[in-house]
Design a protein around this nucleic acid. Structure first.
Lengths: 223, 223
DNA sequence: GGGGACAAAATTGCATACAATTGAGGCGGG
DNA sequence: CCCGCCTCAATTGTATGCAATTTTGTCCCC
């Protein structure tokens, strides 16, 4: 799903293309720096250039791709500094959502968050990386939703997507799963007790460690 | 300027149209709910529908307009709850930027912020609404920039634009200028002393009052 | 062998043309 | 008088065609 995307009653070709291309970027088929040729994409999807151009423009606004007039589009390829900024921004957004969630989640939402978290304990212990990763996204999304603020939640999700291409395989690093789960525990406890400041701090801490993991990963790959 | 807009080397027609339409929305020429007819806009600007459509898609992603497949585009017309969410989101973003600015502004940036603030004291005292309003935007922009985080700064600015259509004439309310200036003083003091938590709190307080002003304004207009 | 100018190919930007869906208005039946 | 259906105009979605700029490849000269 795409941030701020048009409400989809019978999605248009351009919309479908936008999600298709975004998927390609997120799952690594289209790596950062890859050139996005209009006719190529058009032929590849069996459509004309017109909807392709509209899809590209939409993706450009989301930050997933870069367009330069008369130069074409490429998958966004950020410098280490820009990637760092993205991670910091994501940490701040997640922390803000966590703080708001601590203040405004309904009792039902709190119970569900706790249940979700507890179910992840088992996954972490069993080392089920893939299932944990999926559950992790759902966990964070639940916190976005708990903030009860659509613009913030959407932007947080958009940032999560945007850093996606740069954080592949993060969970494969030693002990990430168990550690992530412990940090979730701190976040959940703070939210459940309505400790806004604590939720903020715990979430910043959690997401910052993800960033550290990325940096370690990047360092390994650079070597 | 448009958030996440393509880097402009010889802007394309679609880009120029996007800013033109955005200007129309922001200055009230195109009020919320106004229908954005493609052929109308095309004739009005002397271009074909193609660049108009691309501009609209761009604006849709920014949240300034709403598009529904085969139904056309309208200037975003939010419910009171959605407007409330926008104001809350803006307050949170501004506060986050203020906190980061308190932590990471350079000495030069701090001095400039202080100078800018002091120059606004005179404007507030003299009741120069228009000049103060311009300076106010620059003041907040300086804090965004001081956060040293492009994604957060851009999103904060984008939210500021997005609430624009709903906060017209806010400064005309009694005593807003002086009060705004006093609140700025608290924000600036916190930032200059590196008081991150204080900067956050002061900014939330400041922007929340703007929201209250809006609500009062909306209440008057509804009556 | 290296570098620069020119030409051709490729690619983007814009316009026009066509198709398809929506919404409105009219018409007839109840 | 009201309701449903049908038809048609209006509007959006998509394709194609053309113009302009960028890029690439080649040739010539140094």
């Amino acid at each position: 799903m795409q941030t701020g995307m048009r409400t989809d009653t019978s999605p248009t070709l351009a919309d479908k293309l936008a999600t298709a291309i975004a998927d390609g970027i997120l799952n690594g088929t289209l790596p950062p720096g890859e050139r996005l040729d209009e006719v190529g994409l058009a032929e590849q999807h069996g459509v004309s250039r017109t909807p392709v151009r509209e899809a590209l423009r939409q993706l450009a606004m989301s930050g997933l791709i870069d367009m330069r007039p008369r130069k074409g589009a490429i998958v966004s390829k950020a410098t280490p500094e820009e990637i760092e900024s993205l991670f910091v921004a994501m940490a701040e957004m997640e922390a803000t959502c966590a703080r708001l969630a601590a203040m405004s989640m309904t009792p039902i939402e709190r119970r569900r968050l706790q249940a979700r978290h507890e179910s992840m304990v088992a996954l972490a212990a069993a080392g089920e990386t893939e299932a944990y990763s999926d559950a992790n996204v759902a966990f964070h999304s639940a916190i976005y939703a708990g903030a009860h603020n659509a613009p913030l939640a959407e932007y947080a999700m958009s940032l999560r997507r945007r850093v996606g291409p740069f954080r592949r395989a993060q969970f494969r690093m030693d002990g990430r799963l168990l550690r992530s789960n412990q940090e979730h525990d701190a976040v959940v406890r703070a939210i459940l007790t309505g400790d806004a400041a604590g939720a903020h701090a715990a979430m910043i801490h959690h997401v910052s460690l993800v960033e550290d993991a990325f940096e370690a990963f990047a360092a390994i790959n650079a070597a």
